[in-house]
């Protein structure tokens, strides 16, 4: 009987481990697929700039949960915002994020993207650990927070060297809103201005 219980327990521990592993591995495979896609986009010279920009947009729109991130980043101001302000914020946040990633990717040269592993988190998500390997300086560790919802995996946060982008942005946006008299309008205007700046940079680069 004792032996039986032991086997029974062992079975469940084993099954639990296997379950956690597949969750983890699924997230890992998901991230490595995105990584490969992005690197092909960056290195394939036959793709036009316009096409490249479109494909980036598609990846960012489909692989990141923009709405959850936007709501988190706005924090307690989300509830105060009017429906119109919310819609405008969602749109502007998405556009500035895409623009900032597009400029970041432009600087990509000979770095390599590597998946190191994954770790299930207490909140049901999985952190996929990766790093950018730079030939001449220290590697940059990047952690991706991935959740599965309705059978679909999506990225919810990016942490650079242990620093969550969403938490940093929440803090920054809240400072902007506070300086603007506690109005969500303030962050929307600031984002609009930022977007115009990005637009100018990108346009001038295209013209060159």
């Amino acid at each position: 009987m004792k032996k039986f219980i032991f086997l029974f327990v062992l079975f469940f521990i084993g099954a639990g481990g296997a379950f956690a592993n597949t969750e983890c591995e699924k997230a890992e495979a998901f991230m490595s697929e995105i990584g490969e896609k992005v690197i092909t986009l960056l290195t394939d010279k036959s793709i036009s700039d316009h096409e490249r920009a479109n494909q980036f947009r598609e990846i960012l729109e489909t692989k990141f949960n923009g709405k959850a991130i936007a709501k988190f980043v706005l924090g307690r101001y989300w509830k105060q915002a009017s429906e119109e302000e919310k819609q405008r914020f969602l749109e502007l946040f998405k556009e500035t994020t895409i623009a900032s990633y597009a400029t970041r990717f432009k600087e990509y040269t000979s770095e390599k993207f590597e998946i190191i592993g994954c770790r299930p988190e207490a909140d049901g998500g999985v952190t996929v650990l990766s790093q950018i390997v730079r030939p001449k300086s220290q590697n940059i560790p990047i952690n991706w927070k991935v959740f599965e919802k309705k059978g679909k995996l999506m990225i919810y946060d990016v942490a650079l060297e242990g620093i969550s982008m969403s938490v940093t942005q929440r803090s920054e946006f809240s400072a902007v809103i506070q300086k603007g008299g506690g109005k969500v309008q303030a962050i929307n205007n600031a984002l609009e201005k930022k977007l115009a700046e990005f637009g100018k940079v990108m346009n001038s680069e295209i013209r060159q």
């Binding site: 949960n65 709405k67 959850a68 991130i69 709501k71 988190f72 980043v73 770790r119 988190e121 207490a122 909140d123 998500g125 952190t127 952690n143 927070k145 959740f147 919802k149 919810y156 946060d157 942490a159 242990g162 969550s164 969403s166 938490v167």
Partner: peptide, 14 residues
């Protein structure tokens, strides 16, 4: 250790 990874956006936020 890199354990503080639960204060992030979450599917419930959506």
């Amino acid at each position: 250790e890199d354990v503080k990874a639960t204060d992030t956006p979450h599917p419930d936020d959506e």
